[in-house]
Simulated scan of single mutants.
Amino acid sequence: MRSLIFFLGVFVFVSCDPQTQPKPSAYLSLEYPEKVYQKISILRPYSFEVLASSKLIDEQEDWLKIQYPALKASVSITYRKVDHNLGELLSEAEKLVFKHTLKADEIIYKDFSNAKKRVFGSIYEITGNAASQIQFHATDSTNHFIKGSLYFYTTPNYDSILPAVAYIEKDIFHLMETLEWND
């Protein structure tokens, strides 16, 4: 009986030792606005719909920047006229995607095709701590070529920005689905 009381006494004192556990870092919880789209109002050789709460920045040479101020992110759109150089434009776009392989865990590509609107392209999702998490390009194969890249204004930490990447990725798919060439 004494040994049982002794054992219980030792157990109580040993098990009650307060050890502090480090707490994991917390990340900011982002709130996402409701998805309402509108057609871009800036005159370009192309048009598409963007999130109404995003901000459009008019840039030179028919380029465009779509900013997401609340998410501290932007999608940069570059435009090039196709002049018997489609292979060069596609190669350049792919080089920019695969430039991220050093920091990327994986690069997943999805082809996009809308023959009715003459829009053909690819979307690349770059997982890991790369500088750009999504890149895409689209062309009509004869006259127009656009390339887009998603960037966040912060040091890449893929785990913490993943919800924002998923949110903007839906907008990029919508952009591709509504893309039209203005001939």
Rank of each mutant, 00 (worst) to 15 (best):
E31L: 08
K81G: 02
I57M: 11
T78S: 14
F13N: 01
K65L: 15
Y79D: 10
W63E: 14
G9D: 11
N85R: 00
V14C: 09
L86Q: 01
W63F: 11
E61M: 10
P69W: 13
D58H: 04
S91L: 13
R44V: 01
E92A: 15
V12L: 11
F7D: 00
L90D: 01
A73P: 02
E61S: 12
S53M: 00
L28T: 06
V12M: 15
L51H: 07
L28M: 05
V14I: 15
E61R: 02
S15F: 09
P45V: 12
E34D: 13
F11N: 04
E59S: 07
E34C: 03
L90W: 03
K23F: 04
P22C: 09
I66A: 01
L64I: 07
K81T: 09
G87P: 05
C16A: 15
H84F: 15
L28Q: 08
F48C: 02
K65P: 01
S15M: 08
I77V: 15
V14E: 03
L30P: 03
L96G: 04
V36H: 10
P24Y: 03
A93P: 02
E49H: 03
G87N: 12
D58N: 11
A26H: 12
V10M: 13
I40D: 06
F11P: 01
I57R: 12
Q19A: 06
I57F: 11
E61L: 14
S54F: 12
S91G: 14
L89Y: 10
V14M: 08
L30Q: 12
L51F: 07
E61W: 14
Y68Q: 07
S15V: 05
F48M: 10
S47K: 04
D83N: 13
Y79G: 14
V82E: 04
V36E: 13
K95H: 13
P33R: 01
T78H: 13
L28S: 11
R80W: 11
P18T: 12
S91N: 12
D62H: 14
K65T: 13
A52E: 15
K95W: 14
I42M: 02
F13M: 13
F7K: 07
L8N: 00
K95M: 14
G9L: 15
Y27M: 14
V10F: 15
Q67P: 06
P69N: 10
L90V: 14
E94Y: 05
T20C: 00
Q60D: 12
S41G: 12
P22K: 07
V12I: 13
F13H: 03
Q19P: 00
Q19V: 13
L90P: 04
L28G: 01
C16T: 08
G9H: 03
D62R: 10
E92Q: 08
Q60W: 09
W63P: 00
Q19G: 05
K72H: 09
